[in-house]
């Protein structure tokens, strides 16, 4: 599909997939997707609703496993390791691959307990150590200044935008290399959206970020690479600049110029 590589020669591909087919029961949702996602860059998945972009994203941390009746064919590797191999450890995978969901979903616990949840699950119980992780994660997600005086209050009292940044902090606290974001700003007001986008900009050099979005301006603003999906197929994957200025495929052009979608 990709004839000339859009990536610089020294690019390290963190996520690689080869001929991935995915099924919900008898319905096929993804067709033969082969794709290499570069490390420490922001890659955006765009496409109309139901095109499979979210399903593809959820393959990287095996979240589709939680839906019964799903089936995957093909090869998915993270840092060279086959994550669907028999005996592969899902828990370890998910520590390395964090996820932020479309609808912010902080637990109905205190802000502190939300961020400390992951580390605790993975065996850190020392209060001092937890406090450090919580502070560091909240600073990284640009929430620290707003909540440092009320860490023990219920997270559900935060605004929508703050809740989403808390969810990012919660994901960072586990120490992942990869961050999957499933339309993280789609439920937020414009101001909060900008804050999330700024945050992604700050995290881009440390994490491999894959973001699903239906907002093309957003993809253009924040991503280095963009993949366009249509009806379960990967239509085009290229540097974001190329996709938005000189798309190779007619379907991509129609979509980004708003002729369908």
């Amino acid at each position: 599909m990709v004839e000339t590589s859009p990536f610089p020669a020294d690019t390290e591909h963190v996520i690689t997939t080869s001929k991935v087919n995915f099924f919900y029961g008898a319905t096929q949702a993804l067709f033969d997707i082969t794709m290499d996602i570069p490390g420490r860059r922001v890659t955006a998945f765009i496409g109309p609703s139901g095109c499979g972009k979210s399903t593809f994203l959820r393959i990287f941390n095996r979240m589709n496993d939680t839906i019964s009746g799903t089936r995957l064919e093909g090869d998915v590797r993270i840092n060279g390791e086959d994550i669907y191999e028999n005996g592969s450890n899902v828990v370890r995978l998910r520590r390395k691959v964090g996820m932020v969901f479309q609808k912010s979903n902080p637990f109905p616990k205190s802000i502190f307990d939300n961020v400390a949840y992951g580390p605790r699950i993975h065996g850190t119980h020392d209060r001092q150590q937890l406090a450090e992780i919580v502070e560091k994660s909240l600073i990284r997600s640009a929430l620290w200044d707003e909540v440092k005086d009320r860490l023990e209050t219920n997270a559900l009292g935060l605004s929508g935008g703050q809740q989403q940044r808390l969810c990012i902090a919660r994901a960072l606290a586990v120490g992942p290399d990869i961050l999957l974001m499933d339309e993280p700003a789609s439920a937020l007001d414009p101001k909060s959206t900008i804050r999330i986008e700024d945050l992604i900009g700050e995290l881009r050099n440390e994490y491999t970020i894959v973001i699903v979005t239906h907002n093309m301006q957003q993809a253009a603003r924040i991503s280095d690479y963009t993949a366009f999906f249509y009806e379960g197929h990967l239509v085009e994957f290229n540097a974001t600049k190329k996709i938005f200025t000189k798309p190779r495929e007619k379907q991509t052009e129609d979509y980004i110029t708003g002729r369908f979608g």
């Binding site: 969901f101 609808k103 979903n105 699950i121």
Partner: peptide, 26 residues
Amino acid sequence: PHGYRDASLALGATKWETIRTNVLPY
């Protein structure tokens, strides 16, 4: 809400840990 389960699993909790800490208490 289903989101609690997803969030907990995505953080690397096992299914049982998720149920024990983020479904049963609520």
